[in-house]
Amino acid sequence: MPKIEAATVRAHRAKRLESLIDAAESILAEQGVESLTAGAVAARAGIARNSIYRYFSSIDDLLELVVTREFPSWVAGVEAAIAAEPVPEERVVAYVRANLEQAASSTHGWRTSLSRGSLSESARERVRALHVSLNEALVHAVADLGVEQPELTVSVIQALVDSSIRQIDSGASAGEVSRFAVNATRRLVHTETT
Rank of each mutant, 00 (worst) to 15 (best):
F71A: 10
I21D: 07
R13M: 03
I21H: 02
Y53T: 14
D169R: 05
L130V: 01
G77S: 03
G46E: 13
Q158E: 11
E90T: 11
V147C: 10
A84T: 07
L145C: 12
R186G: 03
V96N: 01
S35Y: 03
H131D: 13
E125Q: 10
A43P: 10
E18F: 00
E25G: 05
V41K: 12
I165Y: 00
L114I: 10
D144Q: 15
T112Y: 15
E148T: 14
H12I: 14
A141S: 14
E121T: 14
I52C: 13
V177I: 13
R186D: 07
V66A: 07
D61R: 12
G77E: 03
L63T: 08
L36G: 00
S122F: 07
V33N: 04
S133A: 15
L134M: 13
R111C: 07
F56S: 12
G32H: 05
A81S: 12
L20C: 08
E192M: 08
L130P: 00
V96H: 00
E34F: 01
T153H: 09
R16Y: 01
D22P: 01
R10V: 12
E70L: 09
V96D: 05
G175N: 06
D162R: 04
R128V: 05
R126H: 05
Y53Q: 13
L134C: 10
A103S: 08
E64R: 12
I59S: 11
E30W: 00
V156L: 14
E148A: 15
H12M: 10
R13N: 04
V96Y: 00
K3G: 09
I52V: 15
L100W: 04
S26K: 05
S115Q: 13
A137D: 03
V41I: 11
Y95M: 08
E192S: 04
V96M: 01
V177C: 05
R166Y: 06
S173C: 10
T37F: 07
R16H: 05
E125T: 09
G39V: 06
E192K: 01
S105M: 08
G39N: 09
V182A: 09
V67A: 14
E34P: 00
A38Q: 11
A76E: 15
V41P: 04
T185N: 07
Q149K: 11
V9Q: 07
Q31S: 10
V139G: 06
S26R: 05
S57V: 10
A184K: 02
A7M: 06
V96R: 00
E25I: 01
R49L: 03
E90W: 03
A129V: 03
A172N: 13
E70H: 11
V189P: 03
E85D: 02
S51Y: 15
N135S: 15
R186C: 08
G46N: 13
Q149G: 05
